[in-house]
Amino acid sequence: MREIKLSIFGFGNVGRAVVRVLLEKGALFRERYGVEFKVVSVADTSGVVWLPEGIDPREALIIKENFGKLSSWTNDYEVYNFTPSEAVREIDSDIVVDVTNDKNAHTWHLAALKDGKAVVTSNKPPLAFHYAELMKEAEGRNLPYFFEATVMAGTPIITVLQDGLKGDTVERIEAVLNATTTFILSRMEAGLDFEEALREAQALGIAERDPSGDILGIDAGYKATILHCLAFHPLTFDRVKRRGIEEITPEDVRRAQGRGNTIRLVAEIEDGAVTVEPREVPRTNPLAVESHENTAVIRTDLLGELVITGAGAGLKETASGVVGDIIKASMKLRES
């Protein structure tokens, strides 16, 4: 049985969902993969809780859910005021798990890799801006750097592009990659105006208090950038041509409906070019998804058209991608 030490950064909804999966399915993972996961540290914005012999993940969940911050956990554990870069260097772990929204996380991802640690992340900006540097560092050290959950939550589009099309040349990808905008546009089809639909999305927790990352196409742009890096070559987010849904009116929606179409925020990815913008698509088109689904239509020279549709949001769904990557990283570390 191989023990794998995890250092988890980010203990919000996704971080806690990941820990719950590790707890609930620990016996299965031991039996199926021969790995025992030990959480040696967890961190939120209030501090880092670290114990080399392993912390109690159940107690971490209780503290966070009852007190809202890990720094309240003072009875049995010391809370450290490490920066993430300090923490990844100081804490002895095998895999650094980043489920934060830290836009500068590439700095401590690189620090982790340089210190011989694998990295698993759901955090999009590091890859959207620093993909080439991160992958060069990981590959040069033969370390896992996995990021399935950055695009389409746990739906394995990253795996498909990395490992599933070895003999194919990707020609184009068209995708709907942001569930919040799909929800808003769907509610506008039901008769709401943009502001009403946005307020409903916020009330349901589908949209953030500051929804700009979704409605301006930034989130979809990050994801499309990552797909371009995989399908073609490294490209950075500042090269994306982007227009969000904030100017879509009920009249636009009704006109599209009258033509048998629907409006969705579509990312088009071709070699050297990424565009994110609202487009009319026929109701029969795979891009006409509903609810929290995402979809990608991948066209290759040999396979033709491959459609991947699945959950693009949700806690369990995102945890699926993160935990799957933790297991993959563990298997690779075991081989090395």
Rank of each mutant, 00 (worst) to 15 (best):
E139F: 11
F194N: 00
A207Y: 06
D98W: 11
E277I: 12
G15K: 00
E195L: 12
V160Q: 03
I218F: 14
V160I: 14
G221L: 12
G217T: 11
E24A: 05
D44V: 15
D238V: 11
V323T: 01
K166I: 12
N101P: 02
A267Q: 03
I248N: 03
L6F: 14
F183K: 01
E290K: 01
D102Q: 04
L51H: 04
M152I: 05
H130G: 03
E196V: 06
P144V: 10
P211F: 12
R209M: 12
M135Q: 00
T262I: 10
H106R: 07
I215E: 04
T225A: 10
A179L: 05
E171V: 15
I4L: 05
R209P: 04
E246G: 09
L51Y: 05
K38Q: 12
E3A: 15
A329T: 04
E270D: 08
P282E: 07
V96Y: 11
M188R: 00
A311C: 06
G205S: 01
E171D: 05
N104E: 14
P282I: 11
V160D: 00
A175M: 09
V170Q: 04
V42W: 01
F9Y: 15
H233Q: 05
S186N: 03
F147C: 13
P286S: 05
E335Y: 06
S71W: 08
A224W: 08
G324Y: 07
D210M: 14
T83R: 06
K64A: 06
A329M: 09
T169Y: 10
R187Q: 08
G167Q: 05
A190P: 00
I173C: 05
N66D: 00
A112M: 13
R16F: 01
A288E: 05
R2E: 03
V281D: 06
Y80N: 07
G304R: 08
E270K: 08
E53L: 12
D271L: 09
L287M: 13
I245T: 14
E280A: 06
P156H: 07
D325V: 15
I206D: 05
G221R: 07
G310L: 14
L70W: 03
T284R: 00
P282D: 04
L185T: 00
G154L: 09
A224C: 12
V281Y: 09
G310K: 10
Q162F: 07
K64M: 05
L230C: 09
N285M: 04
F67A: 06
P156N: 08
N13G: 12
M135F: 02
A231F: 07
T159D: 07
K64Y: 04
L192T: 00
A60T: 08
E305V: 14
A43Y: 08
E78I: 11
C229Y: 03
P144W: 04
Y222N: 03
S336H: 14
E24C: 02
I298M: 08
R141A: 15
N142F: 10
D210R: 13
T275F: 10
G154R: 01
